[in-house]
Design a protein around this nucleic acid. Structure first.
Lengths: 345, 345
DNA sequence: TTTATTTGCGCAAACGTTGTCGGCAACGTT
DNA sequence: AACGTTGCCGACAACGTTTGCGCAAATAAA
C-alpha cells in the first residue's frame, strides 16, 4: 500500500535495481520478457517514480513555477487555470507563488523556486519590481523564463500579453462611435506596462477620431478603499462634464458604477461606462457592464506552452518573441442605449 | 554564484561534510570555533539547505499541500492567503492544488502531494467527493490532515469551519426583525455541509420567531449560466410573494439583484436582499449588498495552525476537534430602508 | 603510568533514481 | 582455437543531506 520503489520491484523479481529502471524506461538493452515482467510488477505495486529523487538526480523536476502578484484576483486565477491545464497535460506540476506586489517576496519566491529545482519560471511582475536584476541573474544561470501580462522590456525572454492597446482602442472607439465626446479614463499604477499600453490605445483612438487629448480626463488610482468615489466626483465636476468613463479595470468600473448611481446619473443615458478585464459578475451588474475581455485562460495556456517549449529545447536559437493575444469587446447595457431595457440574464 | 552545498563549505574549510552539517545544526559535538568558521563560510557562500535532498532523506519536506476546489474564488484565495502567511512564518512552503470540483482530480492531487513528500494536507472537499476513502487511507498511512470549510464528518480529523449556522441565523433574524415575513432562501448544492448548516440556521431562525417553514421558498442552484434568473422568477410568482431573499452566496445574490432590477422591483423597499461570503465588490453594488461575511483569511490561518501543530506533534493524543469561526453580519443598503440613500462609498 | 572518559571530528550508509562501466554468456568470424 | 560481437544484466557512483558509528587526541580518574 505504501509508495513502491524500484527496489521493491527488484526484490520481488530477484533482479537488480538498474535493470528495473532500464526496463521501465524501455531501454534497448533489456530483454523483452524481462521488460514484460517488470511492467507487470510495477503496475501491480502501483509504482510511481519518485519526483523528489528525480529532482535530486538533477535531471528535471517536471515542475514549473508560476509567480503572480496575487491569486485573489480573477484574472490571475484564470490564467493559472490555463497554465495548469496545459502543464499537467504535458506532464508537469505547477507550483504557485504570490508576491503580494512586493519586490522582497518576488525575490524570496524565486529563491524557493530554484531550491525546489523547478524546470522553468512563468512570471507576471509585481508592481513594486522596478529592478529586474534578480531575474536577469536567474536567466544567466540557465533558468528558462517566460513573462506574461505584466512584463518588462529589459528582460530578454518570450512575453505573452493581452492586446492592451487594441482593447483600449476598441473601447474608446466604441464610445466615440456611440456619440460620446468627453471620455474620461480611470486607470491604475502608471508605471505598469499594461497601464501605459491601455492609455496609449485610448489616446490613439481619440487622435484617429480627431478628438483632443485632455490629461485632466485621465486619473490614476490604486484600489484603496474610498478612493474611487472622490476621483469620480472630481471628474464629474469638470466642465464640460464627461459623458463616458473608460476604466482600466472592472474593479474601478464597479466603483464608478456605484458613484454614478449615488449621484442619480443614469447609465448609459447620462454617462456611458466601459470596463477592462473580466470580473465574473460583470454581466450581472445593473446595468450589465460593457467590458474589454482579456482571455486570461488563453494567455496562461500560450505562456506555459512557450515555457515548456523552451525547457524542452524545441526552439533552440529562436530569439524570444512577444505574443499578443487579442482582447474582445463585450458590449452590454452600460454603454448601449438600445440594450438598457433588454434582457441580459 | 550557483547554489552552494555542504560539500562546497567542507572543501573551503578542509573539513568533512558531516562536520559542516552538524555545525550548521548547532550540534553539541562540534567545537565552538569550528561552528563559527562554518557559519561564517555558509553565510559568505549564501548557503541554503537543499529542500529536495532533505525531502529525499525522508525526514520532513517543510512543505504542506492545500487542496481546494478552485482558486478562482475569492473565498478560497483569501483562505490561501491566510494559510501562506502562517505557514511561511513557521518555515513551511505551501503547494496549492485545485480539484475543479471533481473526485478524480482530488485523488490525483493527493497522489501528487504524497509524491512530493508534503508533511501534511489541508483540504476543502470537492463538491463531487461523496466517497472519502482516499482520504481515510491517506490518514491511515500517517499523513496529518486538517479539513476546512467543506468538511466531512466521516473523516476523523480536526475541522475548521465558518459558523454557517450562526451566520444564516443572524441573516434570517435580521430580515425578520426588519419586518420581513416571506423570506426565500436561494442556496447551492444540497449535499454540501455548508449548505445544510446554512439551511438549518435559516430554519431555526424562522422557528424561533414563530414563522412557518415553507419548502417552496427554498431553491437549490448551481452557478450555471442563466440559472438564477428563472429561479428568481419562480419564487416571485409565488403567492404571497416573498418580501426578502437570503442567498447562500454572493454570486447568487448578485444574480438576484440583476433579476430584481430587471423586474423593476426596488431594493430594499419591495424586496430585501442578504448574501453570504465575501465578494470584493459587495460594497460597490447598487444598492450595496448586505452580507454574512466569512473570515476566510482567519479560517485559513487557524486551519494551517492546527495542521502544523499536528505535524510537529504538539498535541499528541488530543482528539480531533472542530473549530467554528464566527461570521459577521455586514448590514448595507440592500436590507435596510434607512441606508438606501446613505453614502456608502 | 595505566586506564576510563570526554571532546571533536571523519567515514559510510541511507533516501530513490539514473548513468557509466564492466562482466559474462552465446554467438559468429577468421 | 583464438578472437571480436552482441545481448543482457549487475555493481557502483552520484545528486545533497542526515546520522550512527568509530577513531583519535585530549583530559580525567585510577
Amino acid at each position: 500500500m505504501e509508495a513502491a520503489t524500484l527496489k521493491d520491484i527488484a526484490r520481488e523479481l530477484n533482479i537488480s535495481v538498474s535493470t528495473v529502471s532500464r526496463a521501465l524506461r524501455d531501454s534497448y538493452e533489456i530483454n523483452a520478457e524481462t521488460k514484460r515482467l517488470v511492467m507487470e510488477c510495477a503496475a501491480r505495486l502501483h509504482y510511481r517514480p519518485n519526483p523528489i529523487a528525480l529532482s535530486l538526480k538533477g535531471s528535471s523536476s517536471k515542475a514549473i513555477a508560476v509567480v503572480v502578484p496575487q491569486i485573489a484576483n480573477y484574472y490571475f486565477s484564470q490564467a493559472i487555470n490555463g497554465i495548469e491545464e496545459v502543464a499537467n497535460r504535458r506532464g508537469y506540476d505547477v507550483l504557485i507563488f504570490q508576491t503580494h506586489e512586493t519586490y522582497e517576496r518576488e525575490v524570496a519566491n524565486l529563491r524557493q523556486a530554484v531550491a525546489r529545482r523547478v524546470d522553468g519560471v512563468l512570471i507576471s511582475l509585481s508592481s513594486e519590481s522596478s529592478s529586474i536584476l534578480h531575474l536577469q541573474e536567474l536567466q544567466q544561470q540557465g533558468m528558462p523564463i517566460v513573462q506574461f501580462d505584466r512584463v518588462s522590456a529589459e528582460l530578454n525572454t518570450p512575453r505573452v500579453v493581452a492586446d492592451n492597446f487594441g482593447g483600449a482602442f476598441a473601447a474608446t472607439e466604441h464610445l466615440l462611435k456611440t456619440g460620446r465626446r468627453r471620455i474620461a479614463h480611470l486607470t491604475i499604477q502608471p508605471w505598469l506596462s499594461i497601464t501605459q499600453e491601455r492609455l496609449a490605445g485610448y489616446r490613439a483612438a481619440l487622435e484617429q477620431y480627431g478628438m483632443p487629448y485632455d490629461e485632466n480626463l485621465v486619473r490614476f488610482s490604486t484600489f484603496g478603499p474610498d478612493e474611487v468615489g472622490p476621483l469620480v466626483n472630481e471628474l464629474l465636476a469638470l466642465t464640460p462634464r464627461p459623458d463616458a468613463f473608460f476604466t482600466a479595470s472592472d474593479r474601478l468600473a464597479v466603483g464608478c458604477l456605484a458613484a454614478l448611481h449615488q449621484r442619480h446619473l443614469s447609465i448609459p443615458e447620462d454617462i456611458s461606462l466601459v470596463g477592462f478585464t473580466n470580473l465574473t459578475v460583470a454581466d450581472m451588474l445593473s446595468p450589465s457592464l460593457s467590458t474589454v475581455m482579456q482571455p486570461a485562460l488563453e494567455i496562461g495556456q500560450v505562456a506555459v506552452g512557450r515555457l515548456l517549449d523552451l525547457i524542452e529545447r524545441k526552439h533552440r536559437a529562436e530569439p524570444p518573441s512577444t505574443v499578443t493575444i487579442p482582447t474582445t469587446m463585450v458590449l452590454r447595457a452600460s454603454s448601449q442605449l438600445a440594450m438598457t431595457e433588454q434582457s441580459f440574464i
